[in-house]
């Protein structure tokens, strides 16, 4: 089975005004199915750039990035969108749609993937139950706490049976007690359901929860350790 993510000499250069900035300067990384990986790095290290590439939100300048064995630089916009449906993105700021209920938000990602109405509802309810929000399903984001919102976001990310969950500072915007609960949930998903987790963070304590930690510094991987 092909690795979930495989990066070979991955490079990304931005133009900041007219000045080229080398955000990634040759990253080599392989993530296998079932792993729980943390990408650790300070701000400006290039970890967000790596996250955007792995999330198929952006294309590399050079090198190859295979997601599920598919080279993303060879995909057009529409194919990239298709690929994103199989990546479970969880954002630091939750990024729920405020006018939809928890259920509506989870259903939305399935409606984007053309899942029929009945199946959408059934699966959304099941997922919200998994993340422990069975009794808050019909509440809108504004009526939910930060931790609850992040659970909704995780349920949404899981909706289309993704190849992996891609989390961007998942506890960066919630209190420490709730953060521990969220981490417990993430670990449980990895251990019990076998969900592959790639988590990007600047927090060393958080990274310690992962089974494997990859440190990014100055656009390259500086260390790759198994906890």
């Amino acid at each position: 089975m092909a690795p979930v993510v495989e990066a070979v000499d991955l490079k990304k250069t931005y133009l900041l005004g007219k000045v080229p900035v080398d955000a990634l300067r040759g990253v080599n990384l392989k993530v296998e199915s079932g792993e729980f990986l943390a990408i650790l790095g300070p701000s400006g290290s290039g970890k967000s750039t790596l996250l955007n590439l792995i999330g198929a939100l952006d294309k590399p300048t050079a090198g190859t990035l295979l997601i599920g064995g598919v080279d993303i630089s060879k995909l057009n916009d529409s194919q990239l969108a298709d690929l994103r449906r199989r990546i479970g993105f969880v954002f630091q700021f939750f990024n729920l749609i405020p006018r939809f209920t928890a259920l509506g938000n989870v259903e939305l990602s399935m409606s984007i993937a053309d899942v029929n109405r009945a199946e959408r509802k059934r699966r959304a309810e099941e997922l919200l139950e998994t993340v422990g929000l069975k009794d808050r399903m019909n509440h809108k984001p504004a009526e939910l706490s930060g931790g609850q919102q992040q659970r909704v976001a995780i349920a949404r990310a899981l909706a289309n049976n993704p190849k992996f969950l891609l989390l961007d500072e998942p506890t960066g915007n919630i209190d420490s007690k709730t953060a521990r609960e969220i981490m417990t949930l993430i670990k449980r998903l990895n251990e019990e359901k076998g969900v592959t987790i790639i988590m990007v963070t600047h927090d060393q304590h958080l990274a310690r929860e992962a089974k494997r930690v990859v440190q990014v510094f100055d656009g390259v991987i500086s260390s790759d350790m198994v906890n």
Binding site: G55, L57, D77, S78, A81, D82, L83, R84, R85, R86, I87, F89, F91, N95, I97, L108, S109, I112, A113, R156, N160
Partner: peptide, 16 residues
Amino acid sequence: TREIGILKALGMKSRT
């Protein structure tokens, strides 16, 4: 704008 970004991150096509 941000909402559109979310939708696209969730896999919505430009056409949609």
